[in-house]
Structures are given as C-alpha cells and as structure tokens.
C-alpha cells in the first residue's frame, strides 16, 4: 500500500488539495482510503466519504499532539485501509508544535503552505517543511507572479531538496503533478519508521507541572539567557 502523509497548519488548504487528488487517483484506477488526524474538530472524513464513496476515518488527538497521535495510530490505520482494499492511504494531519514532522520513511510526505502566509513562513515551520518530499503552495491566485516566485525561492532556501508545486486547488490547477508523484511512490514496508529525529525532551508540563520558571522543572529546560540544558539525574 502507498502511504501519503499530508501536513500543514490549519486553513492552508490541505483538504482542498486532497479533494483534487482523490478523484484523479480514482480515475487512474486506485482505491483510496482517507484518515484525518486533528486535535478536537474535523469533518473531512464525512465529506470525503460522501463525495468519493471511499472508506474514511478520523482520530481526535485530544491530549496528544497530532504528530504524536499519528505515530500511535498509523500502523493500525494501514491495516484498516488494507482490509478495506485500498491501494493508497491518504493521511491528513495538522502538526502543531513544529518540532517534529509526521512523515514516514518510504511514504510520500507533502506539506501544504499558503502563498499568502508571509516570506518567513518557510523558515518557521522546521521539519514539517524540510523533511517533506513536496511542498504544495496553495492560493497562488491571491498573490502576484513575482511574489509567488520569491516565495518559492524562500522555500528552496529553507529546504533545498524539497520539490515545490504551486496549485490553485479550488480549480484543480497544478494537482496532476502531485498525482504523478503519488503514483511513482513505492508501497511502504512492514516496519514503519518516523523520518528524522524527534525533538529531545521529556515535557514536565505534559505531565502536569504548572509552576512558571525553569527552576521548578527538570529534564531539558531553558532559561531566558541560556540555550537549552539538561537538569536532573
């Protein structure tokens, strides 16, 4: 089974892009399954099921971050898609803290960014961009050609190996090359590994410590005038 993980911050147009991708994959004879991972609200699963008659699921990450949740559920999700007879599993996820990325070795990683999001965005989203295979730039009709090209340069400066694809997802413009990339992706193996290294750290806030100030915390901590350092045993 082919695995495509599509990440991007909220409202960038991930769903619009995948809505263009699904019918084109179907036209090429591939059975598609869709998994949406979000924090607390999503209805794309119902939308995709209704519109394309494909098996869909959603998972609310809730207490976990969506990328963390992705690591937990992805293996079972592939089995679920396999049982449903799918050739491709599309996973749509909203990575949040930008310290890790949801992409998996052997799968295709797509990050969706908006042409309107500011010239520094490519430097801000870290591994969500730099570990992706393809950066899809949406909303290209909202900016001038000159700005589109400069935005592309900013992406390539931040992530030189990532392929940039510009799309106007509402009209399906620029979607075909994405479909070609998906078709050219090999099936994933049995053992799945997260691409890149997760951030170092045990989060004391995650385990319930509310006190402000590094003195009250341990593990990887940080003071205003210091880089991160390790405190504790």
């Amino acid at each position: 089974m082919k695995l495509v993980i599509c990440a991007g911050t909220a409202t960038t147009g991930k769903t619009a892009v995948l809505r263009g991708v699904v019918p084109r994959l179907q036209k090429r004879g591939l059975a598609v399954a869709f998994l949406k991972i979000d924090v607390q609200f999503a209805e794309e699963d119902e939308l995709f099921a209704r519109e394309f008659s494909i098996p869909t699921r959603k998972v609310y990450s809730g207490e976990l971050c969506p990328d963390h949740c992705n690591v937990m559920v992805l293996g079972e999700a592939l089995q679920w898609a396999e049982r449903g007879g799918a050739d491709v599993l599309l996973v749509e996820t909203a990575g949040l803290c930008l310290r890790c990325s949801p992409y998996v070795d052997g799968g295709l990683g797509i990050v969706v960014v908006e042409a309107t999001s500011g010239m520094n965005l490519p430097r801000k989203i870290g591994p969500m961009l730099s570990l992706a295979d393809i950066a899809v730039v949406t909303k290209i009709d909202r900016v001038s050609q000159a700005e589109r090209e400069v935005f592309r340069a900013r992406i390539q400066d931040a992530a030189p190996t990532v392929r940039v694809r510009e799309v106007n997802a509402l009209y399906g413009i620029g979607i075909d090359p994405l479909v070609d990339h998906i078709l050219a992706t090999a099936d994933v193996g049995d053992k799945l590994l997260l691409r890149g290294n997760p951030p170092v750290g045990t989060c004391t806030i995650c385990v319930g410590k509310k006190e402000i100030g590094w003195q009250s915390h341990f593990g990887v901590v940080r003071a205003l005038d210091n880089q991160t350092f390790y405190r504790g045993e």
Binding site: S144, Q145, E147, V150
Partner: peptide, 27 residues
C-alpha cells in the same frame, strides 16, 4: 512569461530591495 496581475497590494513582508534581489536571483 511575465504576468502583471491586477493585485494592488503585496503580502510580502520584505523590504523592496531584498524582494527585488531575491527575484533577480531566481530569475
């Protein structure tokens, strides 16, 4: 092709010089 669109605002948070230098570099 160079396309001059009807946009009357830029969204790029860059100074004019830097914008033009980047554009010249990639063109």
């Amino acid at each position: 092709i160079a396309l001059i669109t009807q946009h009357t605002t830029f969204l790029s948070d860059l100074p004019v010089a830097e914008f033009l230098h980047i554009h010249a570099r990639i063109r």
